[in-house]
Simulated assay, not measured.
Amino acid sequence: MALTVVAWLAHAAPVAAQSADLVLCDRLAGDPTDPDKPADVKGTPDVVPADIATAIKYCKVASGSSRRALYQLGRAYAANRQLPEAIGAWRKAADKGSTAAMVELGVLYGTGAGVATDEAEARKLFERAAAAGNPRGVTNLAALSGGGGFAGDPARARELLAKAAESNAEAQYQLGLMLADGTGGARDDVGARNLFEKAAAQDHPGALERMGEFTQEGRGGPKDASAAKAYYERAAALGDEDAKKALKRIECPYAIKDKRGNLVTTLCF
């Protein structure tokens, strides 16, 4: 059906044909987390291998007039393991103001994938994205260098995370950690628990594990051992190692240690 539409529009005005290219680009390579994405575009977490060639074709055409298509072209290239081409597309998109492209470039500079590792450049890109309200820019900046991405300004981290946490599970989780630890402001167990609960409802593994702990201890709200175990189980099913350890402790709560305090064994029910 989509190809029929393209064929029909090929005889219409060039602007309409370009719009059809963007529609297909959005469908095959749209990023669900991209702030530039229209609300009616679902997006895809990863470009499907069978769609890569088609995505590159249509995104390349649409990229002439759309920074979103430029970013999505980079995603398609990256999925095809054409990292230099992806970087080129993301640079152009970032220059045009795409915060999603800024984040992707920041990740590359932070990890040294395809470019020389440059933490300062990664920070600049994340800061630009965060300042424009991109949730991934905020959370990546907060996580940079073990939480030092805000250059010693945790209060600023809270401020930016609070804005991103309105709609982003990772931001909710990161802000919850700060509230729970009293980093960047007053400790707030109730607020932290509320944030973890929101992120857990979106199947965020870390937030599920935190909800398990808070519920088990009665921290920031009611204590409920069965609910805690259920949270741990959901987190463990998603691969969270801390949750797996917590479940083991529940099953084997008694530890036997030697004279030096080293664990010898545990007693399980």
Rank of each mutant, 00 (worst) to 15 (best):
47 V>Q: 12
88 G>E: 07
123 R>L: 02
161 L>W: 08
265 T>L: 10
26 D>F: 10
126 F>L: 03
84 P>C: 06
235 A>R: 11
82 Q>H: 08
87 I>N: 01
139 T>G: 04
25 C>D: 08
250 I>N: 01
6 V>T: 09
153 D>P: 01
216 Q>Y: 09
48 V>C: 02
248 K>A: 15
187 R>D: 01
25 C>E: 07
218 G>W: 10
170 E>N: 12
6 V>Y: 11
142 A>S: 14
64 G>W: 09
73 L>P: 07
221 G>C: 08
173 Y>H: 12
197 E>I: 00
75 R>I: 07
74 G>Q: 07
166 E>Q: 15
200 A>R: 07
252 C>F: 11
269 F>N: 14
145 S>L: 12
166 E>H: 11
107 V>S: 03
95 D>L: 08
82 Q>C: 04
125 L>G: 05
148 G>R: 15
230 A>L: 00
63 S>I: 03
130 A>W: 04
150 F>I: 08
21 D>Q: 13
175 L>V: 06
225 A>D: 15
188 D>T: 12
20 A>V: 09
240 D>M: 05
5 V>I: 12
96 K>N: 06
209 E>Y: 13
53 A>D: 11
148 G>M: 11
159 E>P: 02
154 P>Q: 11
56 I>T: 10
4 T>V: 14
227 A>P: 01
222 P>G: 07
215 T>E: 01
250 I>H: 01
157 A>E: 15
128 R>P: 00
95 D>G: 14
50 A>W: 06
239 G>Y: 08
146 G>Q: 12
101 A>R: 08
191 G>H: 07
261 G>K: 06
186 A>V: 15
261 G>T: 05
6 V>N: 03
111 T>I: 01
56 I>C: 02
183 T>V: 13
178 M>I: 08
239 G>H: 11
170 E>D: 14
241 E>Q: 15
99 T>N: 09
152 G>D: 12
102 M>K: 14
153 D>V: 03
250 I>A: 12
264 V>G: 02
128 R>G: 04
77 Y>G: 05
156 R>N: 13
91 R>G: 00
92 K>N: 08
116 A>G: 10
8 W>M: 11
193 R>C: 07
53 A>Y: 02
102 M>G: 05
22 L>T: 04
156 R>F: 04
249 R>N: 08
30 G>A: 10
175 L>G: 02
22 L>V: 03
145 S>H: 10
180 A>T: 02
35 P>S: 14
228 A>Q: 06
247 L>Q: 07
16 A>T: 13
200 A>E: 04
106 G>D: 05
33 T>H: 14
1 M>N: 13
157 A>P: 09
247 L>G: 03
159 E>V: 05
142 A>V: 08
204 H>Y: 14
207 A>F: 10
78 A>S: 14
82 Q>P: 05
108 L>M: 14
212 G>Y: 03
124 K>T: 10
